[in-house]
Amino acid sequence: MKKPTAGVIHRRTMSAVLHIPRLLVAGVGARTRWLASYVLQIATLVGHAVLRLTVGWGGVRPLTRAVLTRQVLFTAVEAIPFAAMLAVLVGGSVIVQAQMHLSGSPDMVGKLLVLVVVRELGPLVSAMILIGRSGTAMVVEMGNMQVGGEIDALDHAGIDPFEYLVVPRVFGMGVSVVLVALFFLVVAVGTGLLAGSLLVSGDTEAGEFLNLLMRQMSWRDLVAFFAKTFVPGLMIAGIACYEGMSAGPHVTDVPRAVTRGTVRAMSALFLWNVAVSAMLYLA
């Protein structure tokens, strides 16, 4: 066999080397296109659901409204004991840290509660509770319905699966995250107040403490709170419904869809949280 010349070897090497960035660009491109398409699909699903329940409220059937009410009961009300426990622990631990590192200054404690609990941990932990409790359940429910042919059966019976299944779940989750986060904040701040009165030096009264708390808050906190609760709620349910309904034809596809849905919902939640914080507090 003829030995390749140095020129041929050089050309081959250069061709191989130049092929690597092309592969990388192609790979990144495909991944980015997939991500853009996924985000667009979830946004479309959520947007349609919100439009149906806002602009098209009059056309929403009573049964869909009943499903929405049940969804809020299941998602928000049943999550309250667990949310309360976490809120007590979070509120208590923030106060303990404040006592340890901020010399127990009531002003600093109030600031810390607003910074840590109201702005970040409250909405984030509430949304995570609902991903764990209800988002996963939603993927399983929708996935099993898909595998069992129930969604097709609804469609064949003239029931719009989107209106009957997706709309109440998406909107119900949005409302539920807001409610659970509000409850979480009340309990966490209440715990902070209680722990503060026991640990923090001086005789700060409840009214004064709440005053300190309110002084630390601005309109941005209100906007951030709703942006970090209602919108992630919609996203979590949108992702859960999407992953469940596209799980695949086999029962074994459902657990995989749950894992995928949970990871994607968590990622979306954290990315959204950072984006909202950056937009509202850095701008």
């Binding site: 319905m145 042919g149 129930e150 059966a153 003239g158 029931i159 719009d160």
Partner: peptide, 19 residues
């Protein structure tokens, strides 16, 4: 969908909702 509401369709699986 409106037409399907006027027809009774029973699939092979029955299509009952598990929830």
């Amino acid at each position: 969908l409106a037409l399907r509401r006027r027809v009774g369709f029973v699939p092979l699986t029955g299509g009952l909702l598990s929830n």
